[in-house]
Design a binder for these strands. Structure first.
Lengths: 249, 249
DNA sequence: TTCTGACCTTGATCGAGATCAAGCAAATAG
DNA sequence: CTATTTGCTTGATCTCGATCAAGGTCAGAA
């Protein structure tokens, strides 16, 4: 059986947010939900802006409403590795931890629906269903991280690029509620540099591999940031793992 | 503040297990704990034996009592990447998921204290403290996975080897309750092949980098499976990241 | 308009780690 | 006791992706 779609019907629907909050399910106690709804606030960040610095104290938790944010770790000499990619409806921040372990950076303009940490944590303590929901989300993130480890450790540059395109296509489709199939078209929400940080490559290699996939006809580059996939299965083949990447339930 | 030691005082102490169970804390309801204790059983696996096949249905959950087990993902053409390393007191299996997403393999002789999945899951549902404990453990695993991603994506072969030695030394010390310092001596619980799967390298490169670290005097190889570290700080330096790898609380 | 800087592409060359190959030591089997 | 296997090391060579370098395009500023 396939993984549940990213936006389940039972996720909390804010009055004003255009997304459903992955972290908060409709089975939470209504009075608590109402309280949460009352204390939420919105904040936007410009492209490139750092939302949280690694090591810094974090005072808020929330969900990405629009835009894309990245989690990354940096070595003292500047080598950087992305370790998480946050799309709309994804949860930001870690309940129960005071200091942030990674930089959180806006990849483009990002809007976040946020709650003060103490308020949210109090709600979590009082709401077992919410705690369970957080556990499930974290387990899914762990699976994604481990899939990513396979990519970083063992895939070729070409396979890495194809895998990233599959991941973006799949998440994009899930957000829009559309089916994945031939003729798929989507925007790349990441610069070449962000892609290289994601994949453990240099920007030059990213660029070359995109050109190579284009030359092979696996993708069509409408412009640098828009991709069309004439044959989705062909792209999956290029990604190396015959599993379609859907997690097993 | 540093991460709590791997074996906290409040973890459940089985009557007969020589370890404390990381997953189960002493704050769980005593009657439920007693019930769990009543249904536990032990099973041992030989070195190299597969404990769980990826894709297979899993019927048990439990803790590693002795030995070392690995989680790994394999590409269709045989390329393999280790994605998890389970030492004594670590939890095996995923509550709430029917099929295993990875192979679990015994790296050497492994003993597991296990519970039937339905029993354990029922206990989890009835015990909020246990659910919270599982969430914390999973978040820690996620942090470890992300640290590992940095290693796989951006570190050199030499840094990878040094990092692995630091990780093994630290976990070994935590298990024995000893301090990490100069003159540290420990056994490698992994073959060169398992190390190469962990680090995304070939066995030849692993062997060469160990030889290189030996030649530089960073480590002393007593024999192929026993390491002595004359200067722990020097080893940390070789690992590349100046953070000591302890997670931030 | 031109200038500037961000972002992307492509070419030439280099080098870290993979691959191919050989050999050694210790454990296990026959 | 010898033969085989498993795990480890080391050498020679190759190759993929990094590095160094140049140029192109486009948006926004002057």
């Amino acid at each position: 059986m396939k993984h549940a779609p990213l936006i389940a019907q039972n996720h909390m629907r804010c009055a004003d947010c255009p997304i459903r909050h992955k972290a908060v399910c409709a089975y939470c106690e209504p009075p608590e939900l109402a309280k949460l709804d009352a204390i939420k606030s919105y904040k936007t960040y410009r492209a490139g802006e750092t939302i949280v610095w690694a090591g810094q104290e974090v005072e808020v938790l929330g969900s990405v409403v629009s835009g894309v944010a990245t989690l990354s770790r940096t070595l003292p000499d500047g080598r950087r590795q992305m370790v998480g990619l946050l799309l709309p409806s994804d949860f930001v921040g870690r309940p129960g931890r005071k200091l942030a372990p990674y930089d959180v950076v806006a990849a483009n303009e990002v809007m976040i629906c946020q709650f003060l940490k103490p308020d949210f944590e109090k709600l979590v303590s009082n709401t077992p269903a919410l705690e369970r929901r957080l556990l499930d989300m974290t387990l899914d993130e762990l699976d994604a991280a481990r899939e990513w480890m396979l990519l970083l450790g063992r895939k070729t540059a070409r396979e890495k690029l194809a895998s990233l395109l599959v991941i973006i296509a799949r998440r994009e489709a899930a957000l829009n509620g559309t089916e994945i199939g031939d003729g798929l078209r989507f925007a790349l929400p990441l610069t070449r540099e962000a892609m290289s940080d994601y994949l453990g490559l240099t920007i030059e290699t990213v660029s070359r591999q995109i050109s190579a996939l284009k030359k092979s006809g696996v993708i069509i580059l409408e412009d640098a940031r828009h991709i069309r996939v004439p044959d989705y299965i062909a792209l999956l083949d290029e990604a190396g793992d015959d599993s379609d990447g859907g997690y097993i339930s």
